[in-house]
């Protein structure tokens, strides 16, 4: 697994996405401090609601899931799959490494947001209730990031096509940002898109609309896509 983690760490795009996200956050924090000082801490607490979740999504889709199609793109899979550990062990190592690096990305963004907020806000410590609220949002984001990574990785592994996987997994997430929860009804298509593809979790919020339903949906989705991935691997003799 260390090799897989090293590979991601040495991928410049991983750090580029994080730096871009942190850079954007810096600009927004400055503008918030300058023009919306009254709600500066509230806006900082809502970091995951837009910019943070988008950064994490890009990190997962652009960088982390690519490991699951790279062997087909580079035609290295015959060599890899003919080694002792190039099938099952490598698959699970890549999943584990991706999960860890998704969590690391969230942690880095968390630390960056706190640091930027303090620096631009010219403070030394955060308000206690703010820190508690932000930490609890971050835990939800970690859960969402891991789940979103797993589903996206399974999809990418199944179809062995990175651009297509980005579209399949990115589209519902992207659309969900434009859905106004105030006007959607339960079991509506847009309700399903809004809540059913990790958007709320990546935005640091547990799902408030029928949580029991989503408590079943998410494990079923993850397990279902995992089984599909395993089935395709067995067909391709990669397991």
């Amino acid at each position: 697994m260390r090799t897989e983690i090293n590979h991601i760490v040495r991928t410049p795009l991983y750090w580029l996405v994080l730096i871009a996200g942190i850079g954007a956050r810096t600009v927004f924090a400055y503008l918030d401090f300058k023009h919306r000082l009254d709600s500066y801490w509230t806006l900082s607490d809502e970091y995951w609601s837009r910019l943070g979740s988008i950064t994490v999504a890009f990190l997962i889709l652009l960088v982390l899931i690519h490991r699951f199609s790279v062997d087909y793109e580079n035609n290295t899979y015959p060599v890899i799959a003919s080694t002792a550990y190039g099938r099952k062990k490598l698959y699970f190592e890549r999943l584990a490494a991706g999960c860890l690096m998704a969590i690391l990305g969230v942690v880095i963004l968390t630390i960056a947001n706190i640091g930027i907020t303090l620096t631009i806000g010219r403070c030394f410590i955060t308000p206690t209730d703010w820190l508690y609220g932000f930490a609890s949002h971050t835990i939800v984001v970690i859960v969402g990031a891991v789940g979103y990574f797993l589903v996206s990785a399974f999809v990418c592994d199944t179809i062995s096509n990175h651009p297509a996987s980005m579209c399949i997994c990115g589209l519902p997430l992207g659309i969900s940002y434009f859905i106004n929860i105030g006007i959607i009804e339960e079991f509506d298509l847009f309700w399903f898109i809004r809540y059913g593809f990790f958007t709320e979790l990546l935005r640091g919020r547990w799902i408030s609309s029928l949580p029991a339903f989503w408590g079943i949906w998410y494990p079923v989705m993850i397990v279902g896509v995992f089984i599909l991935s395993i089935y395709r691997r067995k067909e391709r003799k990669l397991l």
Partner: peptide, 16 residues
């Protein structure tokens, strides 16, 4: 894996 441990393979279109 026990078989693959004893195997070395160079495919026709070697990828890297």
């Amino acid at each position: 894996a026990d078989f693959r441990r004893r195997l070395g393979y160079l495919p026709q279109d070697f990828g890297f």
